[in-house]
Design a binder for these strands. Structure first.
Ligand code: FES
Ligand code: FES
Lengths: 146, 146
DNA sequence: AAAATTGATACTATATTAGTATCAATTAAA
DNA sequence: TTTAATTGATACTAATATAGTATCAATTTT
């Protein structure tokens, strides 16, 4: 069971790249090359992000994409919803045949509870947070003064 | 994003049927008909359960499948693992290109934390619990003595 | 002996995910 | 003002996963 598919994965990485260079335009090509994401695939993902107002674009030479929304406001839950659809555990697992009482059904509550746990866990993870974590992880050990 | 696929869904329903009739054999056919599960599909799922020692079978006329493992010991996490593979958020989302420091990587920790949250949530849900919840939901309102 | 069943396995169909290709429109720069 | 680098839009193909069907031998009860 894969929780994040390639498109979400790529989308997150592309957003990290854009968040790191906030305020300037990055071309799809450069992002694709640097982060090893299939170019045309990435372009579609980026266009989708524009529709959701996460980023903006500029045509032509020196054009590209630029962060629009605050990275701390972009959650992995949102990205999952954009690229993989809303998180749902099961349509209605125990249907009429089994479960006669939708209104009182404890199972349904159980299922909905898990759904919201998954969602809220991913909500805690924003692009902003990931970027800071990433920078921290990549920062070299501080040298000790002799 | 679908968390449970049909096979897990069907497997859970079949197990509920078997757990409800613990101690006697139920044929694949009867389970399939009663719970509206494609017959041959169900048979494969049941055979898989035998391999994992959840149930046993008996050949021939009056044969069928019977619960073996304690329903309270069968978690949805296990069923997901059997039918959909181990829960994994992303292979290693931010690879060498982005993340240079696997050992210290906070992202990886974050990802693994979420993985275990999802798993442990589903671990709380056992076939035994589901069955009891289900029976409670289906039980008619107790009549009030006049 | 007949009928109802499982075991094993191969097959088909459908949907989702992943990736590629094309061409028009735009913009900066030569 | 031409050229090159870019995005917008969209159509296409390929690979994989999910869902479902079919077949036949072996077993067991009646
Ligand atoms: S599980 Fe859907 S109504 Fe009970
Ligand atoms: S995310 Fe895999 S090592 Fe950092």
């Amino acid at each position: 069971m894969k929780v994040l598919t390639k498109n979400t994965d790529y989308a997150i990485r592309a957003l990290l790249a854009l968040a790191a260079k906030k305020g300037s335009y990055l071309s799809a090509k450069s992002i694709a090359t640097e982060h090893d994401i299939p170019y045309q695939f990435l372009r579609r993902l980026l266009q989708e992000m524009i529709r959701y107002d996460l980023i903006v674009s500029k045509d032509g030479v020196q054009g590209g994409f630029m962060m629009k929304k605050d990275p701390d406001e972009i959650t992995v839950t949102q990205l999952i919803e954009i690229y993989q659809g809303k998180v749902q555990v099961s349509e209605c697992m125990f249907r009429k045949q089994i479960c006669g009482n939708r209104a009182r059904c404890v199972l349904r509550h159980e299922i909905m509870r898990i759904e919201s746990v998954v969602q809220s866990e991913f909500e805690k993870v924003t692009i902003g947070k990931l970027l800071r974590d990433l920078e921290a992880a990549n920062k070299p050990e501080p040298e000790l003064k002799p």
